[in-house]
């Protein structure tokens, strides 16, 4: 298991570096110039040239790449071209906000998703099953910004129960986390239901039932744990999706997170900031994937056996 962990950590680094390299090249391939954005449409050609030189953007790409990589290994991700603030502090601030939002949203989604999924599976083909799935699907089917604007309208303008947007108090996180979590409720509920249904028909669950174990024990102890394998995958994927896809929620609810910053920085061609965000995002996503894989091994004895064999 330790060897497995070390090997996965090594690949995590390799994967992240590959991703950053690709981004580095892609960003310089697409049209647009950060200096022009930073200096505005009124800037003169001379002004732009001077700034490019100052930022080292006139140098060949391999030189810029090499410098970026060398500095990155020393923990220096450079400064944003637009705001001139250090990339690391920009990321630290927004990443924290995004994590808080995504964690709250995933908690909302997992709680309601798993419960709905389990109940729907147990009451397979009942009106509850149908109703919960329809509601869940409505959740996926609504465009994210649409849901956000709707929530604000009802809870901030009409009812005045909750602040519409921004940060500051616990109440501020309610609307954005519901907006961000809702589409995932459906995905998680569906996956839980499918997996539970599959398991509930398995022999060992029938055996457990035949032994006369209470239904609750059968469901939660025997069925759910095994049903969780695909569900964990989905939760992990949804979490990664939220961290990356929070941009709509962050825009509508003006949540100062990393998704919005990434989109802004790509549009402003703020190379150092884009590279920094991708590096951090890559490490995080790779880490999430690793955790999912380790979960697999832990949950499924068959895989555990195989990976032990592979190690040996």
């Amino acid at each position: 298991m330790t060897a497995y962990f070390i090997r996965r950590s090594a690949t995590l680094i390799a994967v992240s570096l590959t991703a950053v390299t690709i981004v580095f090249l892609l960003m310089r391939l697409i049209p647009g110039d950060p200096v022009q954005i930073y200096l505005g449409p009124d800037a003169s050609l001379e002004e732009i040239e001077q700034a490019r030189e100052h930022l080292g953007l006139h140098r060949p790409i391999y030189w810029q790449y090499f410098r970026f990589m060398v500095n990155a290994t020393r923990g220096d991700l450079g400064r944003s071209i637009i705001s001139r603030r250090p990339v690391s502090s920009e990321i630290a601030r927004t990443f924290k906000n995004t994590l808080v939002l995504a964690a709250t949203a995933i908690a909302v989604a997992v709680l309601s998703g798993v419960v709905t999924g389990v109940l729907a599976a147990v009451k397979h083909h009942s009106p509850f099953d149908l109703a919960s799935m329809v509601v869940a699907v409505l959740g996926i089917a609504t465009p994210p910004f649409f849901l956000g604007l709707l929530l604000m309208y009802v809870f901030s303008i009409t009812l005045r129960w909750l602040p519409s947007s921004g940060t500051g108090s616990l109440a501020h996180i309610v609307l954005p986390s519901v907006a961000l979590g809702t589409p995932s409720v459906a995905v998680i509920a569906r996956q839980t239901r499918s997996a539970m249904l599959e398991i509930l028909f398995c022999d060992y669950v029938r055996t457990a039932r035949a032994k006369g174990l209470p239904e609750r024990v059968v469901i939660f102890k025997h069925a759910l744990r095994n049903a969780l394998i695909p569900v964990v995958t989905v939760i992990g994927l949804r979490f990664a999706y939220m961290v990356a896809g929070a941009v709509f929620t962050e825009t509508v609810f003006r949540w100062p997170g990393m998704g919005r910053m990434l989109v802004d920085s790509v549009r402003e061609r703020d190379y150092p900031l884009v590279q920094g965000i991708v590096l951090v995002a890559a490490v995080c996503f790779a880490a999430i994937n690793m955790v999912i894989d380790i979960f697999y091994v832990w949950l499924d004895p068959r895989i555990r056996a195989r990976s032990a064999r592979a190690e040996g």
């Binding site: 604000m152 309208y153 303008i157 519409s164 825009t251 509508v252 609810f253 003006r254 919005r260």
Partner: peptide, 9 residues
Amino acid sequence: APEAATRTV
């Protein structure tokens, strides 16, 4: 607030 609807809300 980048989204105009948010501003009016």
